[in-house]
Design a protein around this nucleic acid. Structure first.
Lengths: 372, 372
DNA sequence: CTGTTAGCGCCTTCAC
DNA sequence: GTGAAGGCGCTAACAG
């Protein structure tokens, strides 16, 4: 089957076009850069024809090398497995397309070491900026980036002492919203379930806000940069709190470690089994992966009708939420991604501002699970 | 807040390093390319030090320009919304990482026109190859690519007359597996629900295989390149067939058009409502998006206990399948992505072969929905 | 072993 | 209006 036009036909270069059009490279370059006003209609026509004939397409890499900007931006993702990530990615994609940028996607699969390597790889490709949604974002890791290096914007995370924009959910408000909803609906035994949060600011904020509301301090303090509340972090740590008789617990679910998950879930089971008919238990999942883990476990343990036993509320609104009827707080994921790129773009274009935080509101979607 | 190390410190170049190390650019280049055997330990040490001191990182773009290969490959995706896509993407990511390639991800959001533009954009970045999972893959669209141009591998789709590798599910076998499973479990009224399939080979193959089994011709013919069965495609088209008393229907669900979906679902409802107590109805979703649409509708119409009314089987195994208990045929998505990159890599490295098709088997995961 | 010399494809002064 | 020359950061012959 040798239909193959043998010579992989080296793509035409600007020189080829110049020759074909009977002119110099300069004019071609001008044409490419839209400096039409400086070209005689006649020459312009010839160039147009030549380009057409040769199916010429300027080499972005070469242009980039010369101009010092290649329109590439890096996107570092911790976990493509999380629907949140994918949704954000869509916003990013759209914004890039609109702004003439091209994203280089890197998936670190929850490995901090890989994040580091990717970050440096991106650097190597001379991306003009990076959007980071990773776990291991430390000040030092990002130094080559956020600092004197290329501009960066953080998604759903902020890092102390780093000069970079950040955009994400208003975690404090979202967690308050959810907790209040549960309280208002008469739940008096609420478990906030979250992945290890020592390193991740957004998880810290959510957990802290939950605890505050439960403690009855639900003041609407504005979310500050980095929670810094970071509690020791015993696996399965359980902070107690109460508000008008309602009790609140924090349960850590380390999804990366099956054994730890097992233990945490066992603790939860005990609570559920032991709960008197008088108290209504609700689970508040800090994000979709946690919610899924909980739902699967509960279903396995209590059968298809598990929702009669416990209510489940989750931050994030995965596609199965509607199907299963759990209440959620939907993040404006698409917009988060879009805004992140816009921020980055501004910085790339040289707009100088101090680090900005863009906190977007979540939307409570009440479903059968908590309203019955 | 002017912590910013003012000069965005132009990154060091090979020239800088050469000067710093008191030598020529060539030696640096040699060092970078691992030609250690040709460098005196002494020089080598100096270079190492200089690189360290300047935090030098070679510019991939420049190398690419010179060598004619930049280790970039394009990945064109029709729909990031589909879990399948994301899973494949993970395999792709992993393989790229292993092979030293860097993927440029393009999301066409189900718009054929955008696919075309992205393809050409990728070309502009001089990617060394592309992996395509799109809708509008026509021979002509891909001409600049698959043909004399850069190598391409198709995912989950084959295009007639295009010289390109393809990797995906063994659709024929998968559809047969599913249909047989339903038949074996006593379902005698089976609806195969699929998105418009005139353009998409994989959907064609699945539908055709379903019909054949229903017709009793379930021969295990090997899947050929491109089904070409392409049936007219009336929206809501319904082909009848029967096998030992069991009836089979094909229902087209155009997810992009709410009105069409409405109509199709109404037809389905009629069938379900009208079904006598004697017949057992099963729905066979051609992929996860279709399955989700069906599940949501059924739940809305028949309540939480909808599964008592109809059985649902789906190709694809989305995260909510386990939770909801539907039977599925899981695709080896990760491997599909991984293999796709491997194929592409071989072609990039110049291995000449005729177009290969790599058909991977699906795995039937039986759950309550069809087994009770 | 090591350095010099040309470019890769394009853009950008700077003259004509 | 138009073109020639030089250089972006790096590699690949060629000499030494």
């Amino acid at each position: 089957m040798s239909t193959t036009p043998l010579a992989a036909a080296r793509r035409a270069t600007i020189t080829d076009v110049a020759r074909e059009a009977g002119t110099g490279k300069t004019s071609i370059s001008r044409y490419l850069n839209g400096e039409m006003s400086v070209l005689s209609p006649e020459l312009r026509a010839r160039i147009e024809a030549a380009i057409e004939r040769l199916d010429y397409q300027p080499n972005q890499m070469a242009r980039g090398l010369k101009r010092g900007r290649n329109r590439l931006i890096g996107m570092l993702l911790a976990d493509l497995t999380n629907p949140y990530t994918v949704e954000v990615l869509q916003g990013v994609e759209a914004a890039c397309h609109a702004l003439g940028l091209m994203p280089l996607i890197c998936h670190a699969a929850n490995e901090v070491e890989m994040e580091r390597r990717y970050l440096q790889l991106l650097t190597t490709y001379r991306v003009e900026g990076v959007i980071v949604n990773a776990l291991g974002v430390r000040e030092e890791t990002l130094r080559p980036v956020g600092g004197g290096g290329i501009p960066a914007v953080l998604v759903d995370r902020s890092v102390e002492g780093l000069v970079a924009d950040m955009v994400g959910l208003d975690n404090r408000a979202a967690a308050e919203l959810g907790t209040r909803h549960l309280l208002d609906h008469g739940f008096d035994d609420i478990w906030f379930v979250v992945q290890p949060f020592e390193q991740v600011s957004s998880r810290q904020l959510r957990e802290a806000a939950f605890r505050e509301v439960m403690r009855g301090e639900g003041g609407k303090g504005h979310e500050g940069r980095t929670g810094g509340t970071g509690e020791g972090g015993t696996s399965g740590a359980k902070g107690e709190g109460s508000k008008g008789g309602a009790r609140g617990h924090t349960l850590v679910l380390n999804l990366g470690e099956p054994a730890a998950v097992e233990r945490a879930l066992a603790e939860l089971d005990r609570a559920i089994d032991g709960a008197g008919k008088a108290s209504r238990i609700a689970l508040f999942a800090a994000n979709a992966p946690v919610a899924l883990c909980l739902a699967l476990h509960l279903k396995a343990r209590y059968g298809a009708d598990w929702q009669a036993r416990v209510a489940l509320l989750s931050i994030d609104d995965p596609e199965w939420a509607e199907l299963t009827g759990i209440t959620t707080i939907r993040q404006p994921t698409y917009e988060i991604g879009y805004r992140a790129v816009e921020f980055l773009h501004e910085r790339i274009e040289g707009v100088q501002t101090t680090a900005r935080d863009c906190l977007l509101p979540g939307e409570l979607i009440v479903r059968a699970s908590t309203s019955r």
